[in-house]
C-alpha cells in the first residue's frame, strides 16, 4: 500500500478524531446551521469512509439481508430522522452521553449503512430515497423558518431561521439536480438487476 492509499484508508478515523477535538466540536456546535448541515453530515461521511474496514465476509452476510439496499437505507433514514430533531441536537450540547451517541450513531448507523446500501440500490429505491430526502429538507426548512419560538434552548431564533433558509436552498438544489438527472443525465434503470448478481 502506498502512503497515499494508507492515508485514504484512514480518512474516516482521522476525520472522526478531528471532529471530536474540543475546539472543532465547539466551533461546529456554535450555531444550529453548522451542527445540522456541517457537523452531522461530516460525521456521516466518517461512516461512509469506514466502509473499507468491513471484512468481506461481513459485507456478504449483510448483503444477504439487504436486497436492493432497502433495509440499510431504512436504517440510515431512521438515524437521520433522530438527529434532525431539535431536541437531540439541543441536548447534545448539554448532555455528554447524547453527544457521545451522536458521534457514534451518525457514523455507524447512518454513514456506514449508506455506503453499504447505496451501490446496491436500483433506480426506484434511489429515487424514493432522494425524493424523500428532498421533501424532508423542504418540510424541515419550512418548520425552522416559520416557527415563532426557539426550538433549541441553545440557539438563537435568527440562527434557527438561517438553518431553515439553508435547508430550503438544499431542497431546491436537490430538486434541480434530480430534474436535470432525469431529463438529461444517464439514468441506469436496470442497475439493480446487474448489481444484485455481483
Amino acid at each position: 500500500m502506498t502512503r497515499l492509499q494508507t492515508v485514504v484508508r484512514w480518512a474516516g478515523p482521522i476525520l472522526w478524531l478531528t471532529l471530536a477535538l474540543p475546539p472543532v466540536r465547539h466551533a461546529l456546535e456554535s450555531t444550529l446551521t453548522l451542527q445540522m448541515l456541517v457537523q452531522i453530515p461530516l460525521l456521516a461521511l466518517v461512516g461512509w469512509w469506514l466502509r473499507p474496514f468491513l471484512p468481506d465476509r461481513a459485507v456478504k452476510v449483510l448483503n444477504a439481508w439487504n436486497r436492493g439496499g432497502i433495509s440499510g437505507l431504512l436504517l440510515a433514514s431512521f438515524a437521520a430522522m433522530i438527529w434532525m430533531l431539535p431536541r437531540t441536537m439541543d441536548s447534545a450540547l448539554n448532555v455528554p452521553w447524547v453527544e457521545l451517541a451522536k458521534f457514534t450513531s451518525v457514523p455507524v448507523l447512518l454513514g456506514l449503512p449508506l455506503a453499504v446500501s447505496w451501490p446496491r440500490a436500483g433506480f426506484v429505491v434511489r429515487g424514493v430515497f432522494l425524493v424523500e430526502a428532498t421533501a424532508t429538507a423542504f418540510r424541515l426548512g419550512w418548520l425552522y423558518l416559520v416557527s415563532p419560538q426557539r426550538l433549541c434552548s441553545n440557539y438563537l431564533l435568527g440562527d434557527q431561521q438561517l438553518a431553515g433558509n439553508a435547508l430550503l436552498a438544499i431542497g431546491a438544489a436537490m430538486s434541480l439536480l434530480l430534474a436535470w438527472k432525469l431529463m438529461w443525465g444517464h439514468v441506469d434503470v436496470d442497475g439493480s438487476h446487474r448489481r444484485s448478481h455481483a
Binding site: I82, L85, P86, R87, S91, L151, C152
Partner: peptide, 19 residues
C-alpha cells in the same frame, strides 16, 4: 427499532424540543 428509538427520544412523540 427505529420507531422505538424515535419514541424514546421524543418521550412518546410528545417532546420534539428540549423545552
Amino acid at each position: 427499532a427505529g420507531v422505538t428509538a424515535l419514541s424514546a427520544s421524543t418521550d412518546g412523540f410528545r417532546a420534539f424540543t428540549s423545552e
